[in-house]
């Protein structure tokens, strides 16, 4: 470390030596080995997290009305109506988890009763399990996609995922919500996606007709699907 000391000619205040010199060299000395791997993992994680919020990164594109039939659509057929920023996916995932769990728990009892009335052979627990598995599977798919390399985020994947999330009919409703609430189409689409996931989790058909019932300035929106009504809210977080 010491290549060439420059204080050889500085005898005004000599270095501490003897016991004091030893004591000085022990100042804040680290006896433990350097935690190389742990720090490298933390550095890699921080750098990866930072790279996922780059504004220029590819974003999900959802068809905004007039889309071709799913069987005919290709990646190039999908109009690029909007490109949600990456934080929208984080918000979407949060909304999905919070609202989905909340609504699902709230409605669990009534759904069991409905299913018994239908003499459904599938138990409510099984439906709950299946819906939850699918629900978290989609979240996992979304998060995996978000953190994947740019090369892995192909247009075809995006188009397929968009069609799976919202059909053209739902997208029209999303456009309506977007107009009513004066919010981005991607946010409105995210609300609807959450609503559909809540319905599935509650054991209801995701094909149930949805109605835009009410919106409030504080961010809440009510979307009834028959008797049950899903309330959505966009949480705010500091970057």
């Amino acid at each position: 470390m010491t290549e060439h000391r420059m204080d050889d000619d500085m005898d005004e205040v000599a270095p501490l030596d003897g016991a004091a010199g030893e004591a000085a060299r022990a100042y804040h000395a680290s006896d433990a080995p350097v935690p190389r791997e742990a720090m490298w993992a933390a550095i890699a994680a921080r750098r990866a997290a930072a790279s996922t919020v780059e504004p220029a990164a590819p974003a999900l594109r959802v068809v905004a009305g007039g889309a071709p039939a799913a069987s005919e659509a290709t990646a190039r057929d999908v109009p690029r109506a909007f490109a949600p920023p990456r934080w929208a996916y984080a918000i979407a995932a949060t909304m999905l988890l919070v609202i989905g769990v909340g609504i699902g728990r709230q409605m669990r009892g009534s759904i069991v009763a409905q299913r018994e009335a239908r003499a459904d052979s599938v138990t409510s627990a099984a439906v709950w399990q299946a819906a939850s598995t699918e629900h978290f599977g989609q979240v996992e798919t979304l998060l995996t996609w978000m953190t994947s390399s740019p090369e892995a985020r192909s247009e075809a994947q995006l188009a397929a995922w968009s069609r799976d999330l919202l059909g053209s009919t739902r997208l029209k409703l999303a456009k309506r919500i977007s107009g009513e609430r004066a919010e981005d189409l991607n946010r409105a689409a995210t609300r609807l996606w959450n609503t559909l996931e809540c319905l599935k989790k509650a054991g209801l058909s995701p094909e149930a007709p949805l109605v835009l019932d009410s919106t409030s300035p504080d961010g809440w929106m009510s979307v009834p699907a028959g008797m049950p009504s899903v309330q959505t809210q966009e949480p705010r977080s500091n970057p």
């Binding site: 100042y27 804040h28 680290s30 742990a38 720090m39 550095i43 921080r46 750098r47």
Partner: peptide, 26 residues
């Protein structure tokens, strides 16, 4: 790490500062 530890006097803080140093360096 050794320099951060000498200045900070704490292993956890030294790890934090080392990580921050490399993130900034990259």
């Amino acid at each position: 790490y050794r320099l951060a530890h000498r200045l900070a006097g704490d292993a956890a803080a030294a790890q934090d500062y080392t990580q921050e140093t490399f993130v900034r360096a990259f």
